[in-house]
């Protein structure tokens, strides 16, 4: 099995998300970037499949701030190869990112084999135009399933579990090669010690690939970005934890909840 894990960096929402003066985009200069949870799970699912069935795990991503450290961490966890496409991902919409990844995958004949699985994260917090996996599947003309939370290889195909609602899941048979948008791996993403990452940084290599910058960069004209208006905000309770506990107990008592 050849698993290509496709990563997409997103702004770190723990930090401030300042809107640029033009009002139509975030100020990328001051943003911190990170990976979405689903992307971490996509790597974990690929590593689990490799442990069970053999094969290789290849990481593919475009350039983004602080991505190198994340790539080395993936290599330390067990990814076999890593490719960084030398295009700034943070200026592209998701559809354009998918086109770049598709052109990388199809540029070299034989790169995608009959047992290839493309594993992007199922969804990202900035997927305004749509999901990477969905666009990618159309660009490379492969079967697609999203919101996947479990993958088993059976012969030449996979049994993939997709989340619906209310804890209900569906099991689907998907022939290889295919694109599976991973929502969560069957196990939490593994931990790797910092020392191991540092060692990998000295020994491993990130392959850099040059490709043309896609046009248009984004499919959708965003005319305005803004913080949600603070209507209906919670009535905030100040003080120490003890003060707040007393006030909350009063509120619960007034409502016959205790």
């Amino acid at each position: 099995m050849q698993a290509f894990v496709i990563w997409k960096s997103v702004p770190d929402t723990v930090e401030e998300l300042p809107v640029r003066g033009d009002g139509g985009s975030l100020d990328r200069e001051t943003l911190r970037f990170t990976l979405g949870d689903a992307d971490e799970h996509a790597l974990e699912q690929a590593l689990l499949l490799k442990e069970r069935h053999g094969g290789k795990v290849h990481l593919v991503t475009l350039d983004a701030p602080e991505i190198d450290h994340a790539i080395y961490t993936a290599l330390a966890k067990g990814a076999d190869t890593a490719v960084k496409i030398a295009i700034d991902q943070t200026v592209l919409g998701t559809a354009a990112i998918a086109r770049v990844v598709a052109s990388f995958l199809t540029a070299t004949p034989g790169r995608m084999t009959a047992d290839t699985l493309l594993l992007p994260g199922s969804q990202a917090i900035d997927d305004l135009e749509g999901e990477l996996g969905a666009f990618l599947s159309e660009a490379v003309a492969l079967p697609y399933l999203g919101v996947v939370c479990g993958v088993t290889l059976v012969g030449g195909q996979v049994l993939a579990t997709k989340e619906f609602a209310g804890g209900v899941r569906g099991e689907f048979e998907v022939p290889l090669p295919a694109v599976l948008g991973i929502q969560s791996a069957e196990r939490p993403p593994r931990y790797v010690p910092v020392a191991k990452v540092r060692a990998v940084m000295k020994s491993a290599r990130i392959d850099s690939v040059e490709l043309p910058v896609p046009s248009p960069a984004a499919a959708l004209p965003v005319t305005r970005m803004y913080k949600p208006p603070a209507t209906g905000r919670a009535q905030m309770i100040d003080g120490s934890a003890g003060d707040i506990a007393v006030r909350l107990a009063d509120i619960l008592h007034e409502r016959n909840l205790i």
Binding site: P143, L145, F164, V168, R169, G170, E171, F172, P175
Partner: peptide, 8 residues
């Protein structure tokens, strides 16, 4: 290509 098998 993608075939539903069962609900869990």
């Amino acid at each position: 290509a993608v075939v539903f098998k069962r609900l869990i």
